[in-house]
Design a protein around this nucleic acid. Sequence first.
DNA 1: AATAATTTTTAGATTTGTCTAAATTTATTG
DNA 2: CAATAAATTTAGACAAATCTAAAAATTATT
Lengths: 218, 218
Amino acid sequence: MNHTATEENYIKAIYHLQHTRDKVSTTLLSAEMNTRPASVTDMLKKLRSKRIVHYQRYKGFSLTESGNKTALTVIRKHRLWEYFLVNKLGFEWDEVHNVAEELEHITSSELVTRLDNFLGNPAFDPHGDPIPDNKGKIRTIKQANLAALPLKKTASVSSVKNQSSEMLDLLNHFQIGIGTRLKVNKRFDFDGSVEIKIGKLPPTIISKQVAQNVFCIV
Amino acid sequence: MNHTATEENYIKAIYHLQHTRDKVSTTLLSAEMNTRPASVTDMLKKLRSKRIVHYQRYKGFSLTESGNKTALTVIRKHRLWEYFLVNKLGFEWDEVHNVAEELEHITSSELVTRLDNFLGNPAFDPHGDPIPDNKGKIRTIKQANLAALPLKKTASVSSVKNQSSEMLDLLNHFQIGIGTRLKVNKRFDFDGSVEIKIGKLPPTIISKQVAQNVFCIV
DNA sequence: AATAATTTTTAGATTTGTCTAAATTTATTG
DNA sequence: CAATAAATTTAGACAAATCTAAAAATTATT
């Protein structure tokens, strides 16, 4: 089964939407892909003929087993390349997405295997998202964001939902990165802000907005 | 100036033909690209409109200054990736060409700069071909093949013209690689074969065919 | 120099992924 | 529940890169 880069992008987008939204629609997918709904319909027919999606006109669609597998290999490649770009080439995490979007479509599976080994078979990418293994298996961990974390327990930052450069800038300022150990001292009900303590730094207060985006393992 | 991967492949092919043949023709380029002459004509018109080639119908074509520059940046990327694949990921030199053909079209120039630094700014790729610098400048060296090298002078293998796996296999058997120091003891006029000596190994005889493909710096 | 052979170009068609505009189906709501 | 709104699909068109078949230009040959 060989797919064009465009097909792979659709497959990946469907995968992500299925995992973050409870209803995936033509319009939603078209917004995700920056195309028109009509183009999505065309592509769905094509993907159906390749047994990548289940699809009945007007009735919605979803990835087949095979489609799911394809999505995971693309995501695996994307995240391995992001890891490479950040940990070997020294990019910042907010700079790597677009480049990884291109690299993920390189076809050689030998390359992926070797890259994975070269990087030391990482389980998580620089944003803390899990990297599927070569069988498509995702190593999951229980995560809680700072707005939900139990108080006074030391936890380790594992991923960040919003991966914009603005967020990176803010986290750099607070000296928070993937792996940083911290605890939540207090949560203020008024505005949902939380006071956190990192190592020997003085406690700081971060907004609810930020807290909801920073995930930890306890 | 942004080009599609296909355009870049044509540009690269024209560059290589201009440097290895004294007359570049539509038919020759079509053979190189595995397309039909008619397709080449179409592409030449397109490249002319982008000021990549000088082209007059029936009169031939050649790269413009800008086309030349583009060719060199693509070649630079190709050879840096080959270096990465061999020296970091452990590929054999005969396995890397096709993967590098894909990687060379990744657009980020920031990526190229960082990759170059990560690799230690190599001047030559794993086949011994020079890697253009970020200004497109190629560091050339005087090379001579084993069929032309002066006798009894120690030289260093710098590149190999035929980059097939058969050639690699043969050179591995003779324990010859890029950087290997050797000297030519004798040349046999009858069949053009040469006797070479590598370090403390017993002298061996290699055929004219092989000798012509192995280049050295004295 | 005239004819034959070769090379190159044009004309028109095909595939992929996209579009707009119109038609159809499903959902909402008064 | 019927009419209106929203979502989805069809129909037909376009740009990129290719093709085949035929025409035109160049080059070679007799």
